[in-house]
């Protein structure tokens, strides 16, 4: 209960709620687009550097490698489960169900950052390698979704006019989040704590303030997305956006339990698995499955699942991590 309250009443979540309320009430408030993109890059650099520095303190153990592998397996697996639920409980066709499922197998780096702060506020440590897990979990879901969409004749038979070989691979593996996150992680790993001391005031001391401003903008985005796209969603589809994170969280909790992960690491793996992408995957889906409707998958992941995760989900995921460690 304390964990839930401290998470819900933290400034980052309250700023998120402010942004979402402002957008739903049709306030004219907005964060300039270039600033929002700059903040996203800053946050990914900061979290990547922090993870890299943490990783540099310890050697790569079998346990760490197993967690990295678990992340990849989960990202491949979750879209399959999401696809089955979507096909059974909603009226989405094969291509739209596959595209939506991809979002739930991939991750939301902002939810991860918010969870990292919630874990820290709850008094638990987390390993830097979870940042690497986040980067590894970005793309496998896209591959599963393409397989699901192409199965049984879904998707296009021939490439769209103007398509170029390798454009999808570039979008999937070299999108901004992966390049910045992995790049900063490697830099942090190479430079270590001593080497990154000079950039500490920028990347550590300012982090909380920038995160508040970013979450305010994310609240505005989520609220606007919901306001503009809610008519495209059926009750069952909205229901999927709320229960699927919990299904994913339970599966991830089983993985974390099997791997004997400590509370902080387990909470972050669970959060990553429960989160849904709204940056990397929507962009990839527009190229790979252009027939799928962004008004469904983007509204669902950004307008329904993201607010659910940052407000109610994260405390539940921390509680799940406590449960599997016998501290619930």
């Amino acid at each position: 209960m304390d964990v839930a309250l401290s998470t819900l009443l933290s400034p980052i979540i309250l700023f998120f709620a402010l942004g979402m309320a402002a957008a739903l009430l049709r306030s004219q408030m907005s964060v300039p687009e270039a600033i929002a993109k700059g903040m996203a890059i800053y946050l990914m650099m900061a979290i990547g550097l922090k993870g890299g520095v943490e990783m540099s303190k310890n050697p790569l153990t079998t346990e760490v490698l197993l967690v990295l592998l678990a992340g990849i397996v989960l990202s491949f697996l979750i879209p399959l489960i999401a696809f089955i639920f979507l096909r059974l409980t909603t009226k989405l066709d094969q291509v739209n169900a596959a595209a939506t499922a991809a979002h739930y197998g991939s991750i939301s780096i902002v939810t991860f950052v918010a969870a990292t702060e919630a874990v820290r506020l709850s008094g638990f440590d987390s390993g830097g390698h979870l940042v690497a897990v986040a980067a590894l979990m970005e793309t496998p879901a896209i591959i599963t979704a393409l397989f699901l969409a192409s199965r049984g004749g879904g998707g296009r038979e021939k490439p769209v006019a103007g398509s170029e070989q390798g454009e999808l691979v570039r979008e999937v593996f070299l999108n901004a989040s992966i390049v910045v996150l992995v790049g900063a992680l490697v830099i942090g790993w190479i430079a270590g704590e001593e080497g990154t001391e000079t950039v500490r005031p920028f990347f550590v001391d300012l982090f909380q303030g920038v995160l508040c401003l970013f979450l305010l903008d994310m609240g505005l985005s989520a609220g606007r997305g919901l306001r503009q796209g809610w008519r495209q969603l059926s009750v069952m589809t909205v229901g999927f956006g709320l229960y699927m994170p919990l299904v994913s969280a339970c599966i991830a909790a089983a993985f974390a339990y099997a791997l004997g992960m400590p509370v902080g690491d387990a909470a972050l793996l669970i959060t990553l698995t429960a989160s849904a992408s709204y940056i990397a995957v929507p962009a990839a889906m527009r190229l790979a499955l252009p027939e799928a409707k962004p008004s469904i998958y983007l509204t669902l992941s950004l307008g329904v699942t993201f607010p659910f995760n940052v407000t109610i989900g994260i405390p539940i995921y921390i509680y799940l991590a406590l449960l599997i460690n016998g501290q619930g």
Partner: peptide, 16 residues
């Protein structure tokens, strides 16, 4: 369009 309003500041992916 298609019964839906859109604006360029809706989401960070800018995919819309």
């Amino acid at each position: 369009g298609n019964s839906k309003r859109w604006s360029r500041d809706t989401d960070l992916s800018a995919s819309g």
